[in-house]
């Protein structure tokens, strides 16, 4: 897909042409001739044939929604997910609190403590989906690619305030073991072929 055709605003050389429209008849004889011509040109039957052809071809486009769903783009920003580390299976979140800080609708609340190995551990983590505007800042700011957006867009609820908790967003451990954890490709994620583009830091300065 290239942009040139959109950037070129000169319509005259883009294959546009004026549709050939006959002049309107001015006298009654002309009108009469037009009626006769339209009557016997059989355009009504063209319309009939087109719809009948579609019925015979039976090329149905209906998506029977609750049973079937359209595939959704990987960059779509729906209800959040928490990812796990591929190697160890522990959660990626380090409890840094950046997501809570950056969230412009103040809908992330978290609490942490120092666990027995003196590592920071997340004890409470919730996102108020009634306030979340799905801006994607939290996913962008997260240094560990831990919080990302998933594809689950059916978040209708019977009240304004409804929450997702850390455990609900976390990839189930068996799904991780089965290799089903999908990396988020949206804003803030690692771009494809990142390895090839990484340069060594020159040590000479």
């Amino acid at each position: 897909m290239h942009n040139e055709q959109f950037n070129n605003r000169n319509v005259s050389d883009n294959g546009y042409y004026l549709v050939d429209i006959e002049d309107y008849p001015t006298d009654n004889w002309g009108r009469f001739k037009r009626v006769i011509k339209r009557t016997f040109r059989g355009e009504l039957f063209v319309g009939l044939w087109v719809v009948l052809r579609e019925m015979i071809k039976f090329d149905i486009h209906t998506v029977q929604y609750p049973q079937e769903k359209m595939p959704i783009g990987p960059r779509y920003r729906a209800v959040h997910e928490m990812k796990r580390l591929w190697e160890s299976g522990t959660e990626r979140c380090i409890g840094c609190g950046l997501c809570e800080k950056i969230c412009i609708s103040n809908c992330i609340r978290m609490d942490t403590k120092i666990d027995e190995n003196s590592r920071k551990e997340v004890t409470e983590y919730s996102i108020n989906l009634g306030r979340c505007i799905f801006c994607g800042y939290c996913a962008e700011v997260c240094p560990e690619l831990a919080i990302v957006h998933g594809g689950r867009y059916e978040n209708a609820s019977d009240q304004r305030e409804h929450f997702v908790l850390f455990e609900d967003m976390l990839t189930p451990i068996d799904a991780l073991k089965a290799g089903k954890q999908l990396e988020f490709e949206g804003f803030g994620a690692i771009t494809p072929h990142e390895d090839e583009r990484v340069k060594k830091t020159p040590l000479s300065y």
Binding site: V51, L52, E54, D59, I60, H61, T62, Q64
Partner: peptide, 13 residues
């Protein structure tokens, strides 16, 4: 049903 099929839909299902 007929209208749906002619418009490439499924109609009542």
């Amino acid at each position: 049903k007929v209208l749906a099929f002619m418009q490439r839909r499924l109609g009542p299902m």
